[in-house]
């Protein structure tokens, strides 16, 4: 409805509206295991204010979240736990791999550390840095929003059937 009372309308695809809603209401699950977790906390607090991107509703239950921020080192004993939490998040779900440790094992190329969480779960955005600055994480969230709008995330591709299911991937 326009200001003068005339009926206006807009045509769009349902998928585009749904994705617009999804990208502006990311509910993060903070998986902070080390110093990257501190930077993630800084990003969520008032100085950097991740609420500007609609991602302030932090949920510690995988059932209520859709963006897992893996911030920190994932060692071999932690890997099955992360896999379980990823499986418990309902689709569509997004994964941000924050920092060198989560993305590649970082400096810890030893027997006890996974060499990147993409060996366990599919990852949408990688954030470089040791640890990344809050701007880095904000950039990752914005990049993820762009990807959701384009339908280029792994969850959306899975939904369309353009990539294999997660169970076969891992």
């Amino acid at each position: 409805m326009a200001k003068d009372g005339a009926a206006g309308f807009l045509t769009t695809r349902l998928e585009a509206v749904v994705d617009w809603g999804r990208k502006n209401s990311l509910w993060p699950l903070p998986y902070g295991t080390s110093c990257c977790g501190i930077e993630m906390m800084a990003t969520l607090c008032s100085d950097y204010d991740l609420a500007r991107f609609g991602a302030e509703a932090v949920r510690f239950s995988p059932r209520q979240a859709d963006m897992i921020i893996v911030a920190g080192i994932i060692n071999a004993k932690m890997a099955p736990v992360l896999k379980t939490i990823y499986d418990q998040v309902s689709d569509p779900k997004w994964v941000v791999s924050m920092g060198a440790c989560a993305s590649s094992g970082g400096i810890f190329n030893v027997y006890s550390v996974t060499q990147g969480i993409d060996t366990i779960i599919p990852v949408d955005v990688y954030v470089p840095g040791c640890p990344p600055s809050p701007e880095g994480l904000i950039n990752a969230v914005m990049r993820l929003q762009d990807m959701i709008a384009k339908g280029a995330t792994r969850a959306q591709m899975r939904e369309r059937g353009s990539i294999e299911q997660q169970s076969q991937l891992a």
């Binding site: 071999a76 890997a79 099955p80 736990v81 896999k83 379980t84 190329n109 030893v110 027997y111 996974t114 060499q115 060996t119």
Partner: peptide, 11 residues
């Protein structure tokens, strides 16, 4: 071995 990884699917 330094890189003697052993990963498990379940906890």
């Amino acid at each position: 071995p330094l890189r003697g990884y052993q990963f498990f699917q379940t906890s």
